[in-house]
Amino acid sequence: MAKGILVDIPKCIGCESCSVACKLWNELEWDPQEKTKTATDRAKEPNNGLWPEEWTSINRYNLQKNGSSVGRYVKTQCMHCEEPACVSACFSKALQKLPQGPVIYDQKLCVGCRYCMMACPFDILRYEWKKSIPGVRKCQMCPTRVTNNQETACTSVCPTGAITFGDRDELLAEAKKRIRKNGYVDRVFGEKEAGGTSWLYISDTPFEQMRFRTDVTTKPLPSYTEGYMKMTPFIGGAWATILAGLYVFNNKNKEPLD
Rank of each mutant, 00 (worst) to 15 (best):
P32V: 09
P32E: 02
Q33H: 14
Q33M: 14
Q33W: 09
E34D: 15
E34V: 00
E34Y: 12
E34T: 10
E34C: 13
K35H: 15
K35V: 07
T36Y: 12
T36A: 15
T36E: 12
T36W: 09
K37E: 00
K37G: 00
K37I: 01
T38K: 15
T38V: 09
T38S: 15
T38N: 07
A39L: 06
A39Y: 08
A39C: 11
A39M: 12
A39I: 09
T40K: 15
T40N: 10
T40Y: 07
T40H: 10
T40P: 02
T40D: 13
D41M: 07
D41N: 10
D41I: 06
R42S: 06
R42A: 03
R42L: 13
R42W: 11
A43C: 09
A43V: 05
K44P: 01
K44S: 08
K44T: 05
K44L: 12
E45I: 03
E45K: 06
P46S: 09
P46F: 06
P46L: 04
N47S: 11
N48H: 14
N48T: 10
N48C: 04
N48P: 00
G49D: 08
G49H: 06
G49S: 08
L50V: 05
L50I: 10
L50R: 09
W51T: 14
W51L: 14
W51S: 12
W51I: 10
P52D: 07
P52T: 07
E53G: 10
E53Q: 15
E54I: 13
E54Y: 09
E54N: 14
E54K: 13
E54Q: 15
W55G: 01
W55C: 04
W55K: 08
W55N: 02
T56N: 12
S57F: 05
S57G: 03
S57M: 08
S57T: 07
I58E: 03
I58M: 12
I58H: 01
N59K: 05
N59I: 01
R60Q: 07
R60C: 01
R60G: 03
R60M: 07
Y61Q: 04
Y61V: 06
Y61T: 04
N62R: 12
N62K: 11
L63F: 04
L63K: 06
L63N: 04
Q64F: 08
Q64H: 12
K65G: 02
K65R: 13
K65C: 03
N66T: 07
N66K: 12
N66H: 13
G67M: 09
S68I: 10
S68P: 04
S68F: 12
S69V: 09
G71M: 02
G71Q: 05
R72C: 01
Y73E: 00
Y73L: 00
Y73R: 03
Y73C: 02
Y73N: 02
Y73F: 15
V74D: 01
V74Q: 01
K75Y: 13
K75P: 05
T76E: 07
T76M: 01
T76Q: 05
T76F: 01
Q77E: 08
C78Y: 00
C78Q: 00
M79E: 03
M79G: 00
H80I: 03
H80S: 00
H80M: 00
